[in-house]
Design a protein around this nucleic acid. Sequence first.
DNA 1: GTCTATACGTCGATAGAC
DNA 2: GTCTATCGACGTATAGAC
Lengths: 198, 198
Amino acid sequence: METEIIPNKIKINKKELILSEAATLFKEKGFGGTSMRDLGEKVGMEAASMYNHIKSKNEILELICFKIANQYISQLQEIENTNQSFQEKLNAIIGLHVQLIIEDAASVSVANNDWKYLSEEKKNQYKQIRKSYEKSFANIIEQGMKSGEFKKMNVSVALFTMLSSLRWIELWYKPSREITPQELEEDLKTLLMNGLNN
Amino acid sequence: METEIIPNKIKINKKELILSEAATLFKEKGFGGTSMRDLGEKVGMEAASMYNHIKSKNEILELICFKIANQYISQLQEIENTNQSFQEKLNAIIGLHVQLIIEDAASVSVANNDWKYLSEEKKNQYKQIRKSYEKSFANIIEQGMKSGEFKKMNVSVALFTMLSSLRWIELWYKPSREITPQELEEDLKTLLMNGLNN
DNA sequence: GTCTATACGTCGATAGAC
DNA sequence: GTCTATCGACGTATAGAC
């Protein structure tokens, strides 16, 4: 392991550097719009040299997408296994999304937008993971409707409205915005749980 | 004009056919993932032959993106110029998005996702149009907050939450879904204006 | 492990016959 | 207006020197 610690900054190895720069570029220009030569330039390496660290351009995409997918899955499971009310669970999910986006906006963006460029096999795997995430999420909503905590409506409409309300953050949030992550999270919870109407 | 009417089906000319098939393919595989040869196959024509109808692959993208952008802009202006309450105006905007997506989901998807592949000049034009749309939308939200109709919160958070809540429909809605456009619109209005909580 | 050179495919687009 | 043939650019990836 060549990882070493430098004051206030974790120095990452070449492979991690490639993945990190790739996420930034894919977010900006899309997977198809980013060439290995573009990426090499950012990494400070000829395109050919990167093949000593990764197997293919597609492997980069896979590593990014599945890293994010696994984070969402594992954290959702933790939320599911608590004894909170359904309302509290939904609030926790909103917090989870805000947190993951703020931690690594570029990778989340790639997972959300460029997964369709995965190989057929990996794409199917990815879709299955996503589906299972949506199913768990939908279950919480549905149970909350049955318990009377939530309004009764089409569960898919509620699910996808919440999911996409959480996705735009990745496109919009920058540390320079005049809003803290805490305020962002607060407003989102208010809006989704109680609506805009006064 | 070689357009002619066939019972229950409007026969469109070659250029419109190319644009329509392109929107479907771009939505499915992305602009970068779709080759002119792919498109030619769907249209029933060699790739080279399409250049008798369009100037370039990029022109196809421009025509799709600006057609949609102009529809949103002009219809938003109509809503702005009415004497409704701000709440009613927001409801009308929700209805506008549902309607445009149901009319032409593929083109809306392309305008939302592939605009970044526009030429530098056209991309700037597009971003400006989008910005002006967002500004008008934000004004309605802000005025409603001032009038006391809406809860006071960060206007951008409210704006982008609403906008992205309306975007997922394009990815999800199919006529085969067990929900009518009317029910979809109704649930969206309830959720965004009054929240999920009971 | 990084480089240069390059193989080899596919891309958008054009030329010119019909 | 459609075709076949093809150009030149650029894509990913590999080979082999250092």
